[in-house]
Design a protein around this nucleic acid. Structure first.
Length: 549
DNA sequence: ATAGGCGTTGGGCTC
DNA sequence: GGAGCCCAACGCCTA
C-alpha cells in the first residue's frame, strides 16, 4: 500500500523529544500524517484517546439507550474502533493510552507531566473541536510545545477552497468540484508505511486503562443480534473497502439512479460511511483506490453520480459547514431559509419511535433504531416526511434524532442533508413540500404505490427495509403491533396537513424573498400570527395547480 | 444590472 | 404501468 500525505512543517523537531498524538477521529494507522509526524525523531511517543464522560456516560433520561449525545450503537462502534486501533498500535510496538476526563484538563496534565515537546492531532472542522483545539493551541504555544495539526480527514483543505472562492464557501456542488480540481496530495511525495513506532514512555501516576467495554462504561449489554451488524475499526473498514473495490466494474460504473428506481437497488452500497466518519478508513486512500480502478478501465462514470463524486459530496458539505457560521441551526444561518416550523413534540415522538402509522416510514425508523444505519435514500424518505406536509416539524429536531442514532452521524453531512431535504438550503423547490403527490392525495395507506422516493423503498430488498420485523423479541413485540391488524392510524390527516403546509410555506417564501432570507425571530412570530388570521388561498400559479380540493 | 441557463430539481401528461 | 417529454419553480451563476 502506498499513501501520500500533505507536506511536513519545515522545522523538524529535535531528536530525543517526547511526542504525543491525540486521537479523536482518524482512528487508523494508515495514511495518518499526524501519527507519522509524531513518530519522527521522537524517542518516546504517547498515543492518547480521551474519553469525555459528558459524552460517554449513560443517560437514562434519553429516549434511547446511550449517552446524552450518542446512541449505544455508535458508542459500541467507537469502542470497537479503539480496540482495533490499540491492536494495530501494539503491532508497531506501541499501544493506545485511554484516559478519562474533560479533554482539555486531561491534555494539559499530559503535556506538562510527560514533558511533551511535540503535540500532533488531526485538524477538525467541527465547531466543538475548533473551540477545544483553540484552547489546546494557546496552552501549548505558551508552553513552547510544537504543534502539528494536518488536514487529513477530508480530500481537500476546506480553508483553501474557501480562500480560492474569495472568502466564502462555494454554494453549489458543481462550483465546488470546479474549484477543487485534483487533490494536491496526488502528486506530492508519498509517506512510507509505518514499520514501527517509538515506545510509550513512562506514564507516571496517570490512571491509564485499556479500552473500556460497554459494560464498564455502565451500559447494559444487549444480545448481539440486536446490535448493529457493522463492526467498528480500521481492520474491518479496510476489509470492507477491499471487498468493495474488488468488483472493478461496479466501481467504474457506479451511478446514482436516473428515473429508474430499480437501477439504484441492485448494487449493494459500500457501507463505508461509518468508517469514514471515524477516520477508520482514510478518504484519501479510498480516493486513490477508486482512481486506480478507473485508470485501468476504458469507461467510467464521473461526478456527481460516480463513486468519486460521492466522496466529493462529503468534501463539499465539510467545506460549506466549515465556512458557514451557525451551520447547525436555522437562526443566524446565512444559507438557511427561514421557515416557521411547527413545534409539535407529540408528532416528533411518533416519528422518532416508529409509530407514525405509515408502514414504510416506521420501518425505516425501526432500522435506524436497531442498526444505526440505513440506505441514504431511506434517510431522504423519512426526513422529507418529517419536514414536509405530514408533520412539518423543524429540521433541527429530526437532525438531533439522526445525530444520536446513526453510527455514521457526521456533523457537516447530517446538517447539510437535513437542510437540503427540508428545502432550507442547497435545494429550494417549495412546491415539492406542499405538493399533494409527495405525501398527499395519492397516498396509499398500505404503502403500495407512491411516486417520488417511495417506489424505491417498495422495491428494495427486504433485508433493507423489512428486516427489523424479523428481529429479536423486544423489537418484534413492537413490530408485530405495527404490521398486524392493529396498525396505528396515521398520526395526521394528510390532506389537512398538506393544506396547512402550503399556506405556511407560501407566506414564508414571500417573506424570505422580500427580506432575502434575513428573517428575525420577530418576523417568524409575525408570520405565525398572520397565518392565524389570514386564511386566503395562495396566489401563485404553481400553487393553483397543486391545490387539493 | 439583468436576463437566461442550470440543477444527484419535481410533477403532469401522453403514448 | 412506465418511459419520455414538457414545464414549473427557485436560487445561484454567468455573460
Amino acid at each position: 500500500m502506498r499513501f501520500s500525505a500533505i507536506p511536513y512543517p519545515t522545522t523538524m523537531a529535535s531528536s530525543g523529544s517526547n511526542s504525543l498524538i491525540w486521537f479523536r477521529k482518524g482512528l487508523r494507522i494508515h495514511d495518518n500524517p499526524a501519527l507519522d509526524y509524531a513518530a519522527r525523531g521522537s524517542t518516546v511517543l504517547y498515543p492518547v484517546f480521551v474519553i469525555d464522560p459528558r459524552y460517554m456516560e449513560p443517560d437514562p433520561s434519553a429516549f434511547s439507550p446511550g449517552s446524552n449525545r450518542a446512541g449505544l450503537n455508535r458508542i459500541r462502534f467507537l469502542l470497537e474502533s479503539l480496540v482495533d486501533l490499540d491492536l494495530n498500535l501494539k503491532k508497531l510496538g506501541s499501544r493506545l493510552l485511554v484516559l478519562k476526563g474533560e479533554p482539555t484538563d486531561v491534555l494539559f496534565r499530559c503535556l506538562s507531566e510527560w514533558s511533551i515537546k511535540k503535540l500532533c492531532f488531526e485538524f477538525d472542522t467541527e465547531p466543538y473541536y475548533q473551540s477545544l483545539d483553540d484552547k489546546i493551541r494557546k496552552y501549548a504555544t505558551a508552553a513552547g510545545i510544537e504543534i502539528y495539526s494536518p488536514v487529513s480527514h477530508t480530500l481537500f483543505n476546506p480553508a483553501d477552497i474557501i480562500e480560492k472562492n474569495g472568502g466564502k464557501p462555494p454554494s453549489t456542488y458543481q462550483s465546488f468540484v470546479k474549484l477543487a480540481g485534483e487533490p494536491s496530495w496526488t502528486s506530492s511525495p508519498l509517506v512510507s508505511h509505518l514499520n514501527r513506532l517509538p515506545s510509550v514512555g513512562n506514564v507516571g501516576s496517570f490512571p491509564i486503562t485499556e479500552v473500556p467495554s460497554i459494560k464498564e462504561l455502565g451500559y447494559e449489554d444487549t444480545p448481539e443480534d440486536e446490535n448493529t451488524p457493522f463492526k467498528g475499526g480500521e481492520s474491518e473498514g479496510l476489509r470492507r473497502l477491499k471487498a468493495s473495490i474488488e468488483n472493478k466494474e461496479w466501481v467504474a460504473n457506479f451511478e446514482k439512479p436516473k428515473g429508474d428506481p430499480s437501477s439504484f437497488i441492485k448494487p449493494a452500497t459500500t457501507v463505508l460511511s461509518p468508517y469514514l466518519k471515524f477516520g477508520c478508513v482514510s478518504s484519501r486512500y479510498f480516493y486513490q483506490c477508486i482512481q486506480e480502478v478507473q485508470r485501468n478501465c476504458k469507461k467510467h462514470t464521473s461526478p456527481p453520480v460516480s463513486l468519486l463524486g460521492q466522496l466529493l459530496w462529503r468534501d463539499f458539505f465539510y467545506t460549506v459547514a466549515f465556512g458557514t457560521p451557525n451551520f447547525d441551526q436555522m437562526k443566524d444561518n446565512k444559507i438557511c431559509k427561514q421557515i416557521p416550523w411547527k413545534n409539535d413534540d407529540e408528532l416528533l415522538a411518533a416519528w422518532r419511535d416508529a409509530r407514525t402509522g405509515f408502514p414504510w416510514i416506521d420501518a425505516i425508523m425501526m432500522q435506524l433504531r436497531k442498526w444505526g444505519w440505513m440506505h441514504h435514500l431511506a434517510r431522504h424518505c423519512v426526513a422529507c416526511f418529517l419536514t414536509r406536509g405530514d408533520l412539518f416539524v423543524h429540521w433541527e429536531k429530526g437532525r438531533d434524532v439522526f445525530e444520536r442514532l446513526l453510527i455514521d452521524s457526521d456533523w457537516a453531512i447530517n446538517n447539510a442533508n437535513w437542510m437540503w431535504l427540508s428545502c432550507s438550503s442547497f435545494f429550494y423547490q417549495y412546491n415539492r413540500i406542499y405538493s399533494p403527490i409527495s405525501f398527499g392525495k395519492k397516498y396509499d395507506p398500505n404503502g403500495n404505490y407512491i411516486r417520488h422516493f417511495l417506489p424505491i423503498l417498495k422495491d428494495m430488498p427486504k433485508e433493507y427495509i423489512y428486516e427489523p420485523w424479523t428481529a429479536p423479541m423486544s423489537i418484534q413485540v413492537k413490530a408485530k403491533c405495527i404490521i398486524g391488524k392493529d396498525y396505528p392510524k396515521p398520526v395526521v390527516d394528510h390532506n389537512l396537513a398538506s393544506k396547512e403546509c402550503k399556506q405556511i410555506l407560501y407566506e414564508a417564501y414571500e417573506l424570505n424573498k422580500r427580506l432575502k432570507g434575513n428573517l428575525s425571530g420577530e418576523d417568524l412570530e409575525n408570520l405565525r400570527n398572520k397565518q392565524e388570521e389570514d386564511k386566503r388561498p395562495p396566489k401563485s400559479k404553481r400553487l393553483k395547480q397543486t391545490t387539493i380540493d
